[in-house]
Amino acid sequence: MSLTSTVADGAQVVTVNAQRIDAAMAIQFKEDMRSETEDGPERVILDLSNVDFIDSSGLGAIVAAMKQLGAARKLDLAGLTPMVDKVFRLTRMDTVFNLYSTLQDALDPEQVEN
């Protein structure tokens, strides 16, 4: 399993336990996200602080994971490391997700965007 999950302040926090979400990892990641988030709180926060590299396949898998949640739930991203942040910005996917620099920020009621 590439993911672990806890519930904090009414949100489900899913932590990625891998350094790379790349082509070799993308399908497993997508399937693991599906089983981790089958039911649960409306808000899911994906903690990416262990991930130092993501490619086009990994980015696609995160988009797929958000779609799997459906319109009633949402996926926020936290802890983006420099290379992951760069890939989101260059593809403009930073405008699709709420991004938080740390998990702590993502859980801070004063910083949460709707």
Partner: peptide
Amino acid sequence: AVDVDTPLENLPEGGFGWLLIREL
């Protein structure tokens, strides 16, 4: 460039590769 101003279900799940290569 990817069209991000689109409903959730239409967001692309790939096709970012050449965009990244050409930007970098």
